[in-house]
Design a protein around this nucleic acid. Structure first.
Ligand code: MN
Ligand code: MN
Ligand code: ZN
Ligand code: ZN
Lengths: 139, 139
DNA sequence: GTCGTTAAAAATAATCGTTATTTATAAATA
DNA sequence: TATTTATAAATAACGATTATTTTTAACGAC
C-alpha cells in the first residue's frame, strides 16, 4: 500500500501514513470525521481537508472502497479494496460485510448483454440487526 | 397512487398531483431539480422545498424509489417502486434498469444466516455505455 | 356555498458534508 | 545543504437538503 503510493510518485508524508494505517486496520467503516479525530491525536495541527484529500487519493488509486451515503456522510473500507456486498442496520447504522455469492459473473453477463463496460458495482442490504430488533421489542 | 395518498389522509393538492404524475411517467430518473423545473411550467410559484417534501413523502409511502448519490444529487424512480438493480454510465450519468436475476432469495438467505430483518437492498452496476465507449475512441 | 380548522405551500434561512483557494511547510533529489 | 515542488494547513466557498416562519388553500361540517 505504501509501495503503491511510491510507485505512483506520491510523497510519503506522516499524515498519509497515519490515514492509511487507520483505514487499513479499522473494521468499522470510519467516516472522514472519524479518521480525522484519530489522526488528530498524533498530529494536532492536522486539517480536515487533508484527510479528505488523502482518503480520496487512496480511493482513486484503488486502495480504499467508498460507501456513498448522502444522508449521513460517506464511509470507507480499507480492508477489502474491491467491490463487495454490505449489510447495514438502519437503526444503529452498523455496517458489516455480507458474504453472499459474488456478482462478478453477473457483471460479465450484464456486460455482454448490454454492451456496457462494467467497471464497478455496489450491493447493500438494509435491515434491522438482531440487537436493534430486541431493543424495539422492549420499548 | 392517488388513492394511496387519500387512504393515508394526505391532502390531494395540485402540486402533489403534478409531482406524482412526472415521477410516474418519467423514465429518466429525474432529480428533484428536474421535477421542479417541470412543475414550474404549470405552477410558476412553486417552491423547491415543496418538491423535496413531496418527493420524500412519496418515497416514505413506498411509491417512489430513491437512488442516493451524494456526489451529484439523488434521483427518483416512480415506475418501479421496489428495489431493483440499475446500470449507470459513469460518463454520461445515464441510469437504466438492469434486469439481472432478482435478489429476493439472496435477501432471505442473508436474513436467516445473520438474524437481520432485511427490509431493502440496492444494487448498482457502474460502467461505460456503448455510446460513451465510441466517443472515447474517437478522441 | 360558506366557514373554520389545519395541513400543506411558499419564501427564506440555516445546516453540513465536501471542495476550492491561498499560503506555509516539508519530502524528495541532487 | 539548497532547490524544487508536492503536500499540509487554514480558511472560504459551494450546493444539495432541511428547518423555520408565514401564507394559502384542501377538506369536512354545517
Ligand atoms: Mn467491507
Ligand atoms: Mn428503475
Ligand atoms: Zn442495529
Ligand atoms: Zn454513457
Amino acid at each position: 500500500m505504501i509501495n503503491k503510493l511510491k510507485d505512483l510518485d506520491f510523497r510519503i508524508t506522516p499524515q498519509r501514513l497515519a490515514v492509511l494505517k487507520i483505514l487499513a486496520e479499522s473494521t468499522g467503516y470510519p467516516s472522514v470525521e472519524d479518521v480525522f479525530k484519530q489522526v488528530e491525536h498524533n498530529f494536532p495541527t492536522t486539517s480536515l481537508a487533508t484527510i479528505y484529500k488523502t482518503v480520496n487519493l487512496l480511493k482513486e488509486i484503488g486502495e480504499v472502497v467508498e460507501l456513498d451515503f448522502s444522508e449521513v456522510g460517506n464511509r470507507y473500507d480499507g480492508n477489502r479494496p474491491y467491490p463487495h456486498p454490505h449489510l447495514i442496520c438502519t437503526k444503529c447504522k452498523t455496517i458489516m460485510d455480507s458474504d453472499v455469492g459474488n456478482l462478478e459473473d453477473l457483471s460479465k453477463e450484464l456486460a455482454s448483454k448490454t454492451g456496457y463496460e462494467i467497471l464497478n458495482h455496489r450491493l447493500d442490504f438494509f435491515g434491522i440487526c438482531p440487537h436493534c430488533q430486541r431493543s424495539a421489542k422492549r420499548s
